[in-house]
């Protein structure tokens, strides 16, 4: 057992380092990933160990970064293309959604695109409307793309390692508010399987389904509800949104009879909408209340810290929503 105290950021770097040591076909490409060490420091030091042929600083050319990763993946490399902010995904959407996602299918299964698009999103830095979004729904809406969003130090490591073993393109979205989060990592532990959700907290009164940073808000709300209201909320971390593990969700919701979905991305047509629809369809006979979405407001993110903080679910809002539901 190798237990280490580390951070989300360092755990990501460890996953990249170990994978690159084991497989020389793994390369990293993106803006500022080499000499600068990554805008959020994830790739710091990797260019020194692996050299400029494998850790490649690119011009500011997002469509070509993602598009060349697609070609590299088809030609035998396993690229990790870094998109500095998920907000730039729109610029790359053709390469991602029309190329990467469809190549296996259009070409009759001849070839896959085993690449990872690493990026980060979310609020918390007063970075404004074009640097604070949660755009996972764009990805989840595209058949052919896998989608992973780690919430813990353990998952930062294990999910990234697993993403680098997938036969199909994976979009891997980190949260900018989690990079400095500390945690214990056991690199030898058998990780939860790729595509499996994790029950972070048991609870018989309702089930909160979430992912990424909102897991921590949901857990904080669950603690408050337990101590102040005697309400026991289960919290499920989806970990990957595609594959989506409904088998973990179903029995807990059937037992509790109530479910809430929490996401930082905007409410309308978002991940929470998809999950609420599925829970409603699949668990209808067991539900005592409508499945409730607590999600980002249907607005852009302001630079004002006050407006920013209140544009996405807070632990207080989740707590209140549960109280409204169970009153």
């Amino acid at each position: 057992m190798t237990m280490i105290e580390t951070t989300y950021r360092d755990a990501l770097r460890l996953a990249l380092t170990e994978t690159m040591r084991a497989d020389e076909n793994v390369i990293i490409m993106g803006e500022e990933v080499g000499r600068y060490g990554g805008a959020y420091g994830v790739t710091k030091g990797l260019i020194e160990e692996f050299g400029e042929d494998r850790v490649i600083d690119t011009p500011i050319s997002e469509p070509a970064i993602i598009g060349s990763a697609v070609g590299a993946a088809m030609a035998g490399l396993r690229p990790v293309a870094e998109l500095m902010y998920v907000d730039f995904i729109g610029m790359t959407m053709d390469q991602l959604a029309n190329q990467a996602a469809k190549i296996r299918y259009m070409f009759g299964g001849q070839i896959g695109v085993p690449m990872v698009l690493r990026t980060q999103g979310g609020t918390g830095r007063s970075a404004g409307a074009q640097h604070s979004q949660s755009l996972e729904a764009y990805v989840m809406h595209t058949p052919g793309l896998r989608l992973a969003m780690p919430s813990t130090v353990e998952d930062a490591y294990h999910l990234l390692r697993q993403a680098l073993m997938q036969p199909d393109p994976v979009v891997f979205i980190e949260h900018k508010g989690l990079y400095t989060m500390k945690g214990t990592l056991d690199t030898d532990a058998e990780p939860a399987a790729w595509g499996k959700a994790r029950v972070m907290r048991e609870g018989a009164d309702l089930v909160i389904v979430s992912y990424s940073r909102q897991i921590h808000h949901a857990l904080a709300a669950a603690d408050t509800l337990a101590s102040e209201d005697g309400i026991q909320a289960a919290v499920i971390d989806l970990r990957t949104l595609n594959p989506l593990d409904f088998d973990t969700i179903r029995p807990l919701v059937e037992q509790a009879g109530r479910a809430m979905v929490v996401s930082e991305g905007v409410m309308t047509s978002g991940v929470a909408a998809e999950l609420a629809a599925r829970i409603t369809e699949e668990c209808f006979d067991f539900l005592e209340d409508p499945v409730v979405r607590v999600a980002g407001e249907d607005i852009p993110i302001s630079v004002s810290p006050l407006l920013e903080q209140n544009s996405v679910p807070t632990p207080e809002l989740i707590t209140e929503a549960v109280r409204m539901m169970l009153k």
Binding site: G128, A129, Q130, V303
Partner: peptide
Amino acid sequence: HGKGGSMHIADMGLGHLGANAIVGG
């Protein structure tokens, strides 16, 4: 009104159609 900030400042009165946080945007 505090929505844009440094990277999104604009003033149509002065013909400033907007600062941008997307390189080339």
